[in-house]
Nucleic acid binder design. Structure first.
Lengths: 201, 201
DNA sequence: GGTCGGGCATGACAGATGTCATCTCCGGCG
DNA sequence: CGCCGGAGATGACATCTGTCATGCCCGACC
């Protein structure tokens, strides 16, 4: 019997997925969580074999949750499930120790199969996403450029970005200008959109 | 037996929800669809009693699908389910004839209850969302301002917005300026963010 | 030890953007 | 009929942004 932790902030979805997994003879959902921190706590309390984590959750995202779970339970296999299949997310997820990565558009049977596969020590990433990730390449942004772009993402004026990043306004403009050039965008918001689409911020 | 059409572009979620609904003795999922147009077609072919529609789907959104279904099957009760509980969406949904509106964060049992309620001729909207919608008020934007803001949303420069909206650049700037003032934003992108958050574009 | 690249900054400049006053045209409405 | 509000437009002006050249400091690497 494979013991599963299921974390997703959408109750309806989480419960439906739990019931679906429970229909499998060899799977058992031993804990559920609706937030990132709750998922980490539930993992500590229940020592599941496999953790199925939504990527976007209040508090901590699925990747950070994975890192924290692995620190306590190195043998727990983490599978990320997400609505937004951005290439960059997949890369970050894999480098943080995730064993499986599925978009929510994947066929239903795949989830149970993936759980079994990662529990057996294997890995599974959605093939389409993997292809995208490979063709998309790495982020061309330096860490600082990514930071600044992230602050710019909500439409703040330069001055506020500078304040939040503890930089001078001139420097912020340089970084944004670099980012715009690298991402082949027409302005900073376009650049934000591109970076987001690729999962680079 | 209540006959249900279930439409959601995320396979994993749709199948899980279908299984959950099938567990109820009085509910039967007679058709599933992964896109807006497919949902409309499936409704025509299967004449369901209740349509459970995701708000964001490829092709047509849940609200448009509702309108099209009601044109053919005026007695079909439509329920919208969504990840993004924006107040404006609720308003638009209700005015297009939707009978139920639930965020995906709602307790799992609520979905089945809502299906029964709307099938019996009732309505059900998530109370929290209803409260938000009331307190949020109506969009202060004129239809044209909303149009322009929508074109501005992806970060295009003014010139391109003007082209897409068939307006002069000056006019676009006026509308944008008005929208920025009305939404109490610092620039057009901030305004877009706000309008989106409220579901006004 | 020298060189190179990244992080950080400044200043100058052009072009994009936001604001404002003002104007026309048109459809509703008293 | 006359008035008004909304759509659409223009022009002037002040800022904000994006670009570029240039410089400093520091850690990495040969």
């Amino acid at each position: 019997m494979i013991r599963i932790l299921l974390a997703d902030d959408e109750n309806l979805i989480r419960v439906a997925l739990a019931q679906m997994l429970e229909l499998e003879d060899d799977l058992e959902v031993v804990a559920q969580a609706a937030t990132g921190p709750a998922a980490v706590a539930a993992a500590k309390d229940n020592t599941p074999d496999v953790a199925v984590l939504d990527l976007q959750m209040p508090g901590l995202d699925g990747i950070t949750v994975t890192e924290q779970i692995l620190r306590v339970l190195p043998d727990c296999a983490c599978v990320i499930v997400t609505s937004h299949g951005r290439p960059g997310y997949l890369k970050r997820a894999l480098s943080s120790g995730v064993k499986g990565f599925l978009p929510k558009t994947t066929p239903a049977a795949t989830l149970a199969e993936t759980v079994r596969k990662v529990h057996a020590g294997g890995r599974h990433v959605d093939p389409e996403l993997a292809a995208e990730a490979i063709s998309a390449g790495d982020s061309p942004l330096t860490p600082r450029e990514a930071d600044v772009l992230e602050f710019a993402a909500d439409g703040s004026p330069i001055e506020e970005i500078a304040r939040r990043a503890s930089l001078s306004t001139g420097t912020v403009r340089n970084y944004l200008s670099n980012a715009i050039t690298k991402l082949d965008a027409t302005n900073r918001h376009d650049a934000c959109a591109t970076a987001r689409r690729m999962g680079w911020i």
